[in-house]
């Protein structure tokens, strides 16, 4: 067996995969709204296994991004519970208003955003080693060594001392992925990471994600790229109005959707392609 390229070799915690729904992540009855009018998570239930790659699709305003932002601890929920690796992670009724209860669990989640979030005043290397040094307490030598490794595997060695302004959009997103991987997350969240890219740069970023998929990284991906969704997903989840309408293997969802709403949505977006 070859060594994993991007995911640091590590035992998958104390977690034992579950053949049924999966207890890597369990969302139960999760409720979130922005005021009265806009309910983005309406008593949502969702399960995920440690080797799952969920791709969430659905019309805009259906709460796809909200789900990721909640998992990352960027936004709170108003009801329900979320467990992560078998431990209570977020509780909508807790005193901290539905934000992550456990900072250690939170640091095991990594996220890449739609817009470029590399810090422009820091070189690629400094972007990569900032959090490992300040949060995980790695020495500069250790962190730099690790950063070299990740960049080399992404074919970005030569950009070690470049500044984000000197990179193409695709390179920026790849560095952003490397920056998140530096913290050895157990779960990666991708929020429309190729939406802001020029078409010719989309593939290089998607390839990195495919590489991660091959190494069994748990991922939740929000994307509008149905072709990519089909390739990378272990399970596609169609959300609308804050609820999971339908979920299943990509082949089933894309060719024989059961729900009329799923079919309607897919006809629209696939027609646009």
């Amino acid at each position: 067996m070859t060594a994993p390229l991007l995911v640091a070799a590590q035992p998958q915690a104390s977690f034992v995969p579950d053949s049924a729904g999966g207890d890597f992540i369990q969302l139960r009855d999760v409720y979130k709204s922005y005021g009265e009018g806009l309910v983005v998570m309406d008593h949502l239930n969702l399960d995920m296994r440690a080797d799952d790659r969920l791709v969430i699709i659905g019309p805009s305003g259906s709460g796809k991004s909200s789900l990721l932002r909640v998992m990352m601890g960027l936004e709170s929920i108003q009801g329900g519970t979320i467990s992560f690796q078998g431990k209570s992670y977020i509780d909508g009724n807790a005193r901290n208003h539905g934000k992550p209860l456990d900072v250690r669990l939170q640091t095991q989640v990594g996220m890449v955003f739609q817009h470029y979030t590399l810090f422009p005043h820091l070189s690629v290397l400094s972007n990569l080693i900032l959090a490992p040094m300040k949060v995980h307490g790695l020495s500069k030598v250790q962190a730099t060594e690790k950063a070299r490794l990740f960049l080399a595997r992404l074919g970005l060695e030569s950009k070690l001392n470049a500044y984000p302004s000197q990179l193409s959009g695709g390179q920026k997103q790849r560095v952003a992925i490397a920056r998140a991987l530096m913290l050895e997350p157990k779960l990666m969240l991708f929020d429309e990471v190729t939406s802001a890219l020029d078409p010719e740069m989309v593939t290089e970023v998607q390839n990195v994600m495919m590489q991660l998929a091959e190494e069994k990284m748990a991922m939740i991906i929000v994307t509008h790229d149905m072709h990519f969704a089909r390739n990378i997903a272990s399970r596609v989840v169609f959300c609308a109005n804050g609820k999971v309408v339908e979920q299943g293997p990509p082949a089933q969802i894309f060719t024989q959707p059961k729900e009329p709403r799923t079919r309607e949505f897919l006809e629209k977006v696939l027609h646009l392609d």
Binding site: M111, T117, L183
Partner: peptide
Amino acid sequence: EHLDACVALGL
């Protein structure tokens, strides 16, 4: 987004 990224990085 940079503030979000800081949270995601655990700063």
